[in-house]
Amino acid sequence: MKLLAFAASNASHSINRQLVDYAVGLLADGQIEGVPAGALEISSLDLNDFEMPIYSIDRQNADGIPQPAHDFYNLLGAADALLISFAEHNGSYTVAYKNVFDWASRIDMRVYHDKPIVMLSTSPGGGGGGFVLRTAGHLAGYFGNEVLASLAVPRFGENFDTEADRLTDPDLDVQLREALATLAGVLTGCADNPDS
């Protein structure tokens, strides 16, 4: 199964990138129930590779849809499942993610290609990016997504050891592992359909 994992942030030291990298490590090493080591073909992307002018209908009418939007859209389409950790800016998506997403939605509104997804978020504060996570989950079906599980990790600096690259709060770590274990059902489905 092909899993595409990324942080919806363009920050060079994104805590959401650290969280999604930790999750990917658990999946790759076979530490998630029902997902054996090596069972996933995991790839990632960096939002900085998809910088484009701010979306406007005038730009689209004048110049069409930029190639990076097509590239982003196609990468999501090539995956069997998605793992995204959403950074929250003022209660919503980062501008970087929203712009890429808006451009890609002009190719097709079902940007997520009806792929199953595990959604994460984290922030330095107690909300853990919960506002953006709820927004993303609420809109997922409209944009072609089946949300398998979601988890907001609050107070990243207190609950994540950046030197050891791991969650230190045992309850949050269990919740993350349970969220990632939902990918096992997708993995089984892909085994039944080897062309996926």
Rank of each mutant, 00 (worst) to 15 (best):
D192Y: 05
Y22A: 08
S12K: 15
L187K: 04
M109G: 08
Q31E: 13
D63N: 10
F50Q: 01
M52K: 04
A87F: 12
T162N: 14
K115E: 03
M119Y: 11
V100R: 05
V20F: 09
I84E: 01
A87D: 11
S43N: 14
A11M: 14
A37L: 02
F50L: 02
Y142W: 15
S44C: 04
D63V: 01
A37M: 07
L176Y: 00
N99M: 00
A140I: 13
S14I: 14
Q31C: 10
A69W: 04
Y22F: 14
I32Y: 03
S43K: 15
L133I: 11
A191L: 12
N90R: 12
R155N: 14
N90L: 14
F50T: 05
F50N: 03
A8K: 07
V132W: 02
L167M: 05
L82P: 06
G141T: 12
I117E: 07
L83R: 09
G189P: 08
L183P: 01
E41G: 05
V186I: 10
G157F: 14
A179T: 00
I117A: 14
G185Y: 00
I54H: 03
L148W: 00
F6S: 13
P36A: 09
K98T: 11
K2E: 09
N159R: 12
E51H: 04
A149S: 07
P124M: 13
L47W: 03
L187P: 01
Q67S: 13
I117H: 03
P194A: 00
D102F: 03
E51M: 06
L26K: 10
D114R: 13
M119V: 10
H138W: 08
R59S: 03
A104N: 07
V111H: 06
A37T: 06
L180G: 05
I32S: 00
S196K: 10
L40H: 12
D21R: 11
R17L: 14
A11H: 15
H113Q: 09
N10C: 13
L27S: 04
V35G: 00
N145P: 01
A96C: 02
I57F: 07
D71M: 11
D165G: 01
R110M: 11
D49T: 06
R110T: 04
V20A: 04
A136C: 06
F6Y: 15
G144R: 13
D169P: 01
L83W: 08
F101S: 14
V111Y: 08
E158Q: 13
Q175Y: 03
S123K: 11
F143W: 07
A184I: 07
F160G: 09
I54F: 08
G30N: 04
F101Y: 11
T122F: 10
V186F: 01
F143M: 10
L151A: 06
I107F: 05
G38C: 10
G34Y: 02
